[in-house]
């Protein structure tokens, strides 16, 4: 998706040299970490940070504001109207910042349920879609049964989205949890929200998940997954050979492919310029209510 930024032409040439030396860091959707900037500092002192708009960081926090990069479907007026609608919805309900790997509790108004309210707690395994179509999938194991529910972010029946644990994982999509041992997907339904102190960066959970023995739903060995620990012990020689044949090491040098998957920096600046103020305002109000809630409501006494 459009999480990385397209480079300008001057950057493209320098990037070509850069590839030879290291992995394609800017394919990663993680914001530049502390050790990375320290490494780059001697090569290009301060050039990146000064030329970039600070609002661009929002591309990680609110990825659904960026439209689908397919040029066939792009239209500036429609995108403006869509963003206006998204902001209107955000004024009604607080859609918090979360990432794949965070644990959420979603309360919806369900016409089928008794009491008309339905709450589900789970870990976010996927986040996809652009604009009003943005969706996410929550997974949990309840009564030894794995359950996944797909929700739309901008659905007006959603009453509340609460982040119980805000964290990131090593991978973009956590589909491998379906083939992992159930303890990695089990989260208690009455979990308390874990509060992070203000200003801390989003923690990265480096957990490496153990998979169940095969058969699996997908060929996890062929996808470069960082969050899985014991793939190798389940593989046969045939799988290893086939994996080598299927590898596409040239893909990381394919600049045009990357270009087609992202929104250029100029367009992104425009987009974030439009929505930044309102989103920032919403963030501030959210922090205030958060503070008030933690101060005023005492923890219920058990027993």
């Amino acid at each position: 998706m459009a999480l990385a930024i397209r480079r300008t032409t001057t950057d493209l040439f320098t990037a070509a040299k850069w590839f030879a030396r290291r992995d394609c860091r800017f394919l990663s959707s993680l914001p530049e970490k502390a050790e990375e900037t320290a490494e780059e500092a001697p090569k290009r002192p301060g050039r990146r940070s000064s030329s970039r708009n600070p609002a661009l960081e929002f591309r990680h926090v609110y990825p659904e504001f960026l439209p689908d990069p397919n040029p066939k479907w792009r239209n500036s007026l429609r995108e403006k109207l869509e963003r206006a609608d998204m902001l209107k919805r955000r004024n009604q309900i607080d859609i918090p910042e979360f990432y794949v790997g965070s644990i959420l509790a979603v309360t919806i108004a369900d016409p089928h349920a008794q009491g008309k309210i339905n709450r589900f707690v789970g870990i976010c395994i996927e986040r996809k879609g652009c604009g009003l179509r943005a969706e996410f999938i929550l997974r949990n194991v309840i009564d030894h049964q794995g359950i996944e529910v797909r929700y739309e972010l901008y659905d007006p029946t959603i009453q509340r989205i609460q982040v119980l644990r805000l964290e990131k994982r090593l991978d973009d999509k956590l589909y491998y949890l379906r083939d992992a041992l159930p303890e990695y997907s089990t989260f208690p339904v009455d979990m308390d929200p874990e509060i992070l102190p203000e200003g801390t960066p989003v923690p990265l959970n480096p957990v490496q998940v153990k998979l169940k023995p095969r058969p699996w739903l997908e060929r996890w060995e062929r996808q470069e997954l960082k969050g899985v620990s014991n793939i190798e012990e389940h593989l046969k020689e045939k799988d290893r050979v086939r994996r080598e044949l299927r590898k596409t090491p040239w893909e990381k040098y394919d600049l045009m492919k990357q270009y087609r998957k992202t929104i250029p920096e100029e367009d992104q600046n425009e987009i974030w310029g439009e929505v930044y103020n309102q989103l920032h305002q919403l963030q501030i109000t959210r922090k205030k209510t958060y503070r008030k809630r933690t101060l005023s409501t005492p923890k219920p006494q058990l027993g």
Binding site: I147, V149, R150, Y151, R178
Partner: peptide, 18 residues
């Protein structure tokens, strides 16, 4: 009562066909 098939939004999907 439960399917592995991808369902519509808000309908839960299970890990086994029940």
């Amino acid at each position: 009562v439960g399917l592995k098939q991808t369902q519509k939004v808000k309908v839960p999907k299970f890990d086994s066909n029940n």
